[in-house]
Amino acid sequence: MSDRVLVIVPTYNEAENVERILQRLHDSVPTAHALVVDDGSPDGTGAIADRLAAADPRVHVLHRAAKAGLGRAYVAGFCWARERGYDVLVEMDADGSHPPEQLPRLLTALQDADLVLGSRYVEGGRVEDWPAHRLLLSRVGNRYTRWALRLPLQDATGGFRAARAELIDRLPFDEVASEGYCFQVDWAWRALRAGARVTEVPITFTERAYGRSKMSSSIVGEAWARVTVWGVQDRLAGWLPGRVTPPVPGPDGDTRR
């Protein structure tokens, strides 16, 4: 697609990963720009990103003073992108779990949608090398989210997604307080409530090879608590869930692997 694409990559202590993931991104989508949003990583991630940006005009860096949560990092990235006129905003983790090689599939699906979610749990999606307890937590969390919020999504917690800038402009991100992966549920829920066209595309999610996961019990607790409260509020308000476009087939038109 000819739109200006910005891939937002939040980082905190990803010195071993950030250069690798940006190289893979530009091998896969050479015209895409990348914004590294670094939360004051003490391991030097920000300095590595600055070096890459100095050598490549497609790479940009937004430095934040301290670690303040995934949600706030993305909102800061959204604001930066809109001030500079990007048309498509992509969320992607720095740790390699979101394969940049599959980004073209998301961008193609965005031609007929406002928001495209890279999904591990639609047909054709899969998870590789994840510990059993993490996979179970993710599966249960997504099932609970679908039930509590009545969301027609298989992978509302996933963080690999592409959105039209017009949708970002329509959503009240100044009201979003979620910080961990609950942020992903939060704004997918808001997008459906706003009548956005949402679809899911199968991806292969791979456990990180370098560095440490940022998942913690507090992040999980935030998600369960907020989803429960939102679900109760929706039922009391009488809101009915939206619908999503059927999942986009994987390679060769087959949703199965």
Results as ranks from 00 to 15, higher is better:
R256F: 04
G158S: 15
D39N: 09
R105K: 04
F160L: 10
V61Q: 01
R256M: 00
L62P: 05
L70V: 00
I168K: 02
A196W: 12
S218Q: 07
R235P: 02
E175V: 05
V90T: 11
V140I: 15
A225I: 03
A15W: 08
N17K: 09
L137W: 11
N17W: 05
V244A: 11
R105S: 15
A65D: 11
D93K: 01
C79Y: 03
T108S: 12
E101Q: 13
R84G: 10
N17I: 00
A55R: 13
S28M: 05
R257T: 12
G141V: 12
R120N: 12
G46H: 01
D129L: 05
R134F: 11
P241A: 06
P99S: 15
Q23L: 03
D27R: 12
M1P: 07
R82S: 10
D43W: 12
L25I: 10
D43G: 02
D129E: 14
P246T: 08
L167C: 01
V122A: 13
I168R: 03
R150Y: 05
D169T: 15
V116K: 11
V36E: 07
L236M: 09
V88W: 10
A191K: 03
S97Y: 04
R51I: 00
V229G: 01
R226K: 13
R139Y: 11
R134S: 15
S138L: 13
A32H: 07
S97N: 13
L167H: 02
P104G: 02
E14V: 03
L35K: 05
E128D: 14
R84T: 11
D50W: 02
A209M: 11
D93I: 08
V36Q: 05
T245Q: 14
A148K: 13
L103W: 01
Y121I: 05
Y74D: 02
L117D: 10
G211V: 04
H98C: 15
I203R: 01
R4V: 00
D186I: 01
T206L: 09
P131W: 08
P246S: 06
D254S: 10
G253R: 12
V59Q: 06
M92C: 02
G125R: 09
H63C: 00
R134Q: 14
P131C: 09
E128T: 07
G211K: 08
R126E: 12
E14S: 13
R24V: 00
G180E: 07
K67D: 03
A188S: 11
D50E: 14
L240H: 13
W187E: 00
G195E: 04
Q184R: 04
G40V: 06
V59S: 04
D129S: 12
D186N: 14
M215G: 13
W80S: 08
P42Q: 01
W130K: 05
A53Q: 01
V36G: 03
G250F: 09
F78T: 06
R64G: 01
P152T: 04
L149D: 10
L151K: 03
L137Q: 13
L135R: 11
G159Q: 03
E91G: 15
A34W: 00
Y181T: 04
G71D: 10
W187G: 04
C182Y: 04
V185C: 06
W80F: 09
E123S: 15
N17V: 06
D254H: 11
V220R: 04
W239N: 06
L240F: 12
A49S: 15
D87R: 10
D186F: 03
D87K: 10
D252E: 10
P172R: 10
S41E: 00
P42Y: 01
T108R: 09
L89S: 10
F183I: 01
